[in-house]
Nucleic acid binder design. Structure first.
Lengths: 343, 343
DNA sequence: TTGAAAGCGCTAACAC
DNA sequence: GTGTTAGCGCTTTCAA
């Protein structure tokens, strides 16, 4: 009975006005009389008219949609970022097309291509690999506004990111200040081309004149307590194990804590552990976790502001802007003064 | 120098063929010669041609995009569901438009309207309120395929959901079997119209001939350990406090655990606690959490399969199908036999 | 095998 | 104030 969907034309036929007038009226143009507008609005209401944004997009060459590409959203900090981005975008009338790369570069490239095809007005991306971003650079040629959510070494990009290197530096320094000298790191990014955290760790060691010892550096790709557990195992099995460990994300830290419980080690008595991200649950871990914290909402807001500025200024190429959020240490119970070896 | 974006017309002009031939060739139609196809593909490649899916959508009346509306994604179980949905959809060539309602009905309605405007081919939704879904019912009139991610009392809808009531029943029964008789619940849904968990709790009590005691029922809206903490406080402050508590989500349970630590209560010695969702971190809580578990990936896959079936069969109205995922109890350390009162 | 023409639902120029 | 026309980039008849 009911026609699938009412179009401007239908309500034009219904009211006797032209499609143009109807279009104008529905957009509350001052050109059309109050009376006709009301008439038209009423008809539209009755026919449950919904403008077809696809058609509108085609003619206006803008979709008011942005593409968001994250590696995954199971890391609660990325979850929060994603949610904050979606909310900030919705507040400004934009929709969010969402894709996860699952840390696979091919997926990431694919997602970007799909977004381009769907004519997104801009892209927000946390790249799998912070160094290999040629595929993202290409977007500039299409004049497609892009904001990176991770710092990228070469520059030349709009960036809103956390100072991961600084965070890692602060974490390591915190341990050093507690007297620790043998400090392990369970890194997550190095293998996939994100060396920031490892760098920060090394920065702090160097500053304190502590030599690098590769037995204290392990790397796991992914995000899960079991990986942290495995990393800890590798660290502790070696000769001269650490007295403190920096887990490059909180999930890893939970695995580390778990390893300690299983092996009867007291945290922080026997060993200190510090995480990264300050996810909500870190306060409720087996030992409340000392960790590196920052505000993902702030980051999301800055990224959205920048992207929408780039889109809406629309003008000639703007000079890339790099903005950073600074992390802090949130001290809880999992780190403590180094105990003198009982020997 | 470079034209913003190459169109079919441009590559037609370039190669001397008509736009139609170019379109056919690029879609690998057998009608066009191998030779011309290669010629055209090469030209397209050179001009970095990307088909405009918006234009395609307009003529084909399908966007290969679906809308996903969740209350929020900070609950890790919804995060996992969201991610699994996005992945399953991408595998089948669909994009995901994403929105969070933040448990606000107005937001939810707004999101749906936006999605309709953007001509999504279908909608997947976890509604804020499982009973008030008139706004979702309206979608049926638009012949827009919808799959609900929560069970809905009236029927008449395609549903893929967890048996929340059964999960709550099992959780409560688990506590009863351990000898508990005064069992508290910290509910999250009742106030917003999702009584399933409270019902399941009451089912189990009734079955065991334990009378309902409203002093043992508290309700918090939201998802966060601090709410669980507050709920626990309310429960324990009253006369005849419980010896076991069912927290309707794991975040609440963490808050409960925290309250117990602060008040020197041993879990499970003094009090048992059980959560709901089995989020990854529940194994790493202060006391590893006994909780209700299920597989969000399975749920996501079923929901996507159903929605795409509805879309692709496209035919006349299909009889609504209700599918359910059954939860199980994962027993860890936070629940134990009821201790006889020392009195 | 390829081309011409029409049209998806809308907005934008320009008449009237 | 309102109507007419053209066109966004594509697919889809229908011819040739």
């Amino acid at each position: 009975m009911s026609p699938p969907r009412a179009r401007l034309k239908d309500i034009a036929a219904m009211t006797g006005f032209s499609t143009n007038t109807v279009s104008l009226a529905l957009r509350k143009s001052p050109l059309v009389t109050e009376d006709t507008r009301q008439l038209i609005e009423k008809a539209a209401e009755e026919m449950s008219y919904r403008p077809n944004e696809i058609a509108k997009s085609l003619v206006q060459r803008q979709t008011r949609t942005i593409g968001l590409v994250l590696t995954n959203i199971v890391n609660p900090i990325l979850t929060q970022t994603a949610q904050a981005i979606e909310t900030a975008l919705a507040d400004r009338g934009y929709s969010t097309l969402f894709a996860t790369s699952t840390n696979d570069r091919e997926h990431e490239i694919k997602a970007i291509e799909v977004f381009q095809g769907r004519q997104v007005d801009g892209i927000l991306i946390y790249p799998t690999n912070h160094s290999q971003i040629d595929h993202i650079k290409k977007l500039r040629k299409f004049h497609l506004p892009v904001v990176l959510l991770a710092s990228e070494p070469d520059g030349g990009f709009d960036v809103v990111s956390l100072k991961e290197r600084l965070g890692a530096y602060k974490a390591t320094r915190h341990l050093i200040e507690l007297g620790h000298k043998r400090i392990g790191i369970i890194d997550s990014g190095y293998r996939v081309g994100n060396p920031e955290k490892l760098q920060g760790y090394l920065d702090a060691l160097a500053e304190a004149n502590i030599g690098r010892d590769d037995r204290l550096i392990v790397s796991e790709s992914g995000y899960s307590p079991v990986l942290g557990h495995a990393g800890m195992e590798a660290l502790m099995i070696a000769a001269e194990p650490p007295t403190a460990v920096f887990a490059s994300n909180d999930a890893f830290a939970f695995g580390v804590l778990d390893w300690c419980i299983q092996h009867g080690l007291d945290v922080p008595g026997d060993i200190s552990v510090i995480g990264f991200d300050n996810i909500e649950f870190s306060a409720y871990a087996a030992t409340p976790l000392t960790t590196v914290s920052y505000d993902p909402k702030l980051l999301a807001q800055m990224a959205v502001d920048r992207l929408l500025f780039l889109i809406e200024s629309g003008g000639p190429e703007t000079e890339p802007l790099m903005q950073h959020v600074e992390p802090e240490i949130t001290v809880r119970k999992s780190t403590g003064q180094r105990r003198e070896p009982s020997k």
